[in-house]
Design a protein around this nucleic acid. Sequence first.
DNA 1: CGTATTCCCTGCACGC
DNA 2: TGCGTGCAGGGAATAC
Length: 271
Amino acid sequence: MPELPEVETVVRVIRPQLTGRRIACAQFAIARQLAPQTPPDIARALRGSRIRDVTRRGKYIRVETDRGMLLLHLRMTGRLYVRPEGKPENVYERARFELDNGRVLVFHDPRTLGTMRFFAPHEPIVPLLKIGWEPLSERVSAAALREKLARRSQAIKPVLLDQTVWAGIGNIYASEMLWEARIDPRASAARLSSARLERIIEAVPRVLQRALDRGGTTLRNFASPDGIPGAYQKEFRVYEREGEPCRRCGRPLRRIVQAQRSTYFCATCQR
DNA sequence: CGTATTCCCTGCACGC
DNA sequence: TGCGTGCAGGGAATAC
């Protein structure tokens, strides 16, 4: 379940391992993860390319090469790491990129929900065109947020998951942020007061930065490419804490389902 | 346009 | 112990 802090952690580890390296060979096990492109398409495009940089935008990872950009999304169970050359370590290695230094970049993904696409130079990166603010680097005003939420009839929690508002927020941090901001996840996004919008604007980067400082969250399968698990799950205020006491008021936390996803909150101090 | 629904996929917790 | 069931969920596609 990589969200922004987990994806950023991945990028920080693999970036120095990849920058300047040449991709000697690319192999893909599951064509669907590349659709509408095909394994030979992307393999041909990447063979012999030089990696210039590895960056993040929202939950996307950009592997920028001199031949174009490989855009990766880990979805739920994707992992990226660099390992020594040799046999696949296990059956979940869905893509392998052999480097010019005897190492291999691996896209590891049991559930195969992750995606990979290649963009030629100057080709529009469509998935990134409509994506929203970068929570850790863009300062947002209450007026701008109000405008963005104006025609949204949904509750604020599902709206926080919409990547065209802020990019990088997922289900875990959305609940955590609303607890931090003391806002009811069921509140109508379009009708939030300015004071509440300001609290959200503060909580969004604060929660993500704290999680990033802990190396992200490790629940079932996330680990950074260097194998170090995240520690933010130890600081969950609400996520997966149904029935446990609120750390602010002591009342038992609740779980509800919004837009087919679990939301955790305190009905007493989130208003 | 926005919103709701379905689908993709496998590991794992759970109950019997 | 073994097995079936349902849930985990990001984003695309689809229907309305």
